[in-house]
Structure formats: structure tokens, C-alpha cells
């Protein structure tokens, strides 16, 4: 599955972030940090995406949307929690409408903390996510061999 890890496509969803992390995710893909030099392309379609970038914490209203996007993505897939709210709830952890980090809804592979998360941290997290993607695709291949 080298093709996926050479050019990972990302999908971004703003769970209940304050926009700070969202614009940093977009800034990562724009000139200045130029995430696209690693073959990263932002897509709006979960079925095309390999890496799921989630910003912000989970609440009752958006937990189903996050799960839906995650379920629509094809295996192997990696989830990156961008920003401290996505990691643990951050400054809003004791708000009445915040359940907690994204790991309360879906399994998270890489955590990128920060308020707002810095574009360098997002690039690092994506590169780390690509290694996880490779591992997962190898495991998937082994599983298929076993099935034969």
C-alpha cells in the first residue's frame, strides 16, 4: 500500500473547535507550510480519504457526524486529533456541552496538541500518521493472506 503513504489524502472535520485549529489545518496545506509537497491533498469526500483530521471536542450533536465520516472512510485509515480540544477537551473540558476528546467517539492514532495547534505540529502528526497507515495496510495484507 505504498501509494497511500506516499500521497495521503486528508479529510478535515471541525467538531466543535473555535476555528483556530481549523484555519491552521488549512494553512498547513497552503503556501508558507505547503503540506502538499508531501503529497497531501485535502478532499471533501470521506471515501477518498486516508487520514481524518479532527479539530475540536465531541458533543452530543456532532458525535454521530464524526462516527459517520469515520465509518465511510475505507480501511486502512488513520485519525489525527488536531489541537488540545480534540486531544482532551482542553480549556472547554468542563463545559456542559462537551463530552471530551475525539477518542470518546472514534479510535485516535496520533495526537497533535497545541492551542491553536501549530502547522509544524500538524505536518509532524501527518508524517507520523503515514507510518501508522503503512503498518495498518501491512496488517491488512497479512490478514488477507491468512484468509486464503
Amino acid at each position: 500500500m505504498a501509494f497511500a503513504s506516499k500521497s495521503p489524502w486528508v479529510i478535515h472535520y471541525d467538531a466543535s473547535s473555535c476555528n483556530g485549529c481549523d484555519i491552521e489545518v488549512l494553512a498547513t496545506l497552503c503556501p508558507g507550510f505547503d503540506g502538499e509537497r508531501f503529497g497531501v491533498i485535502n478532499t471533501g469526500n470521506p471515501k477518498h480519504a486516508d487520514i481524518f483530521l479532527v479539530t475540536g471536542s465531541v458533543n452530543e450533536r456532532n458525535i454521530s457526524v464524526i462516527k459517520e465520516i469515520y465509518d465511510q472512510m475505507l480501511e486502512p485509515k488513520v485519525v489525527v486529533a488536531c489541537g488540545i480540544c480534540a486531544c482532551s477537551g482542553g480549556i472547554f473540558h468542563d463545559c456542559y456541552n462537551v463530552i471530551g476528546g475525539v477518542d470518546k467517539a472514534i479510535p485516535v492514532d496520533v495526537y497533535a496538541p497545541g492551542c491553536a495547534v501549530r502547522p509544524e505540529a500538524i505536518i509532524d502528526a501527518i508524517v507520523e500518521g503515514v507510518a501508522v497507515l503503512d503498518q495498518k495496510s501491512k496488517a491488512l495484507k497479512e490478514q488477507k493472506k491468512g484468509a486464503k
Binding site: N59, F92, V98
Partner: peptide, 23 residues
């Protein structure tokens, strides 16, 4: 709407006025 609602205005009860600036 309601996807991003966190309930910040309620936080003034637990944060003092200097801390709430950062919220």
C-alpha cells in the same frame, strides 16, 4: 445549528474575570 455549541457563557460561574479573558 448546534454542532459547535460548547456553553462558554456558563463558564463565568467557575472562572474568575481574569481567567475568563482567555476563554
Amino acid at each position: 445549528i448546534g454542532f459547535v455549541h460548547r456553553g462558554l457563557e456558563k463558564l463565568v460561574e467557575t472562572r474568575d474575570y481574569n481567567q475568563f479573558l482567555y476563554v
